[in-house]
């Protein structure tokens, strides 16, 4: 068991270090996230003002938290559906992965989470700094901080585990680019990347809540922005855990089925 933990710990570290080599890319991401952040500020603040200072529980301070936190998380939450596993399935490398004494899903997810955690440093912290500079609403209760940190971690893992599902579809599909782009388009929207889902019409909000996407980004932000209290935070965490179990379990089942499929088809 300890040996096993060590393996995943190292994979986490490898993912972390690999990200650290793309310095210029990180700078580019910073410029991109700031630019989009400012555009979001313009249009969403105007929305709050037009609504008389409060829209669906968001005042200017909470909207600011939403904007800069969502920009901070962009580099860490996989909303693109792009994964390494998709590439390895395509070029047949995955057959080698199956020979290793590791769970393919767990290894992939761990490495990706390592990269995502690293990305918080060059891409997350500067956005939070901007948010802090221009002013963000923070939760009243100190309990919200550990809860939102946990929620954030869950959000990252859920996003990675869900993107993994798109990747393993490659066991059965020749080309996964189409589904991946569809995933990217839908996931960003329903995760509340451009507009908080509470601003959606009721039916669309319910639709979003029926998917794992709000668990990736919206819920951690709701907790940290103080839009929900500690009780509400615990409910959101429970929802996140349920989605993690669902996408994780499905990924495990698909990985096994994919392996059988490979063995039958001979790669």
């Amino acid at each position: 068991m300890r040996a096993m933990t060590r393996v995943y710990w190292r994979l986490l570290g490898a993912g972390f270090r690999r990200q650290s080599t793309y310095r210029l890319a990180a700078l580019g991401g910073l410029v991109a996230n700031t630019t989009f952040g400012l555009l979001k500020v313009a249009v969403l603040f105007a929305t709050v003002r037009a609504a008389g200072g409060d829209v669906a529980g968001y005042d200017l301070g909470r909207m600011s938290t939403y904007i800069w936190l969502s920009q901070a998380l962009l580099g860490s939450i996989n909303l693109s559906g792009r994964t390494d596993i998709a590439e390895r399935i395509k070029d047949g490398q995955v057959a080698v992965d199956f020979l290793r004494p590791l769970d393919v899903q767990a290894a992939e997810v761990t490495t990706a989470v390592g990269g995502a955690l690293f990305a918080l440093i060059p891409r997350g912290i500067p956005m939070l700094a901007i948010g802090g500079f221009v002013g963000m609403a923070l939760p009243a209760s100190p309990a919200a901080y550990p809860l939102s940190a946990l929620s954030l971690l869950l959000g990252i893992v859920i996003s990675v585990a869900a993107a993994y599902l798109v990747g393993v579809a490659g066991f059965w599909l020749v080309e996964t680019r189409g589904p991946q782009i569809c995933y990217m388009v839908v996931s960003g929207f329903l995760a509340g990347l451009f507009v908080p889902i509470q601003l959606f019409p009721r039916w669309l909000e319910l639709t979003a809540q029926a998917t794992p996407f709000p668990s990736m980004m919206m819920y951690p932000i709701d907790i940290l922005a103080g839009r929900v209290g500690p009780a509400g935070a615990l409910t959101l965490l429970a929802v996140q855990l349920a989605w993690l179990a669902a996408v994780g379990g499905l990924g495990q089942a698909l990985t096994r089925a994919g392996r059988r499929h490979l063995e039958v088809q001979g790669g």
Partner: peptide
């Protein structure tokens, strides 16, 4: 997927105007 992308971009604008009438 290309159609969907454009549709979602339109939806992003639309949901804001659903929350307020004038922006």
């Amino acid at each position: 997927s290309s159609f969907l992308a454009a549709l979602v971009e339109l939806a992003e604008v639309w949901v804001l105007f659903h929350a307020v009438t004038r922006l």
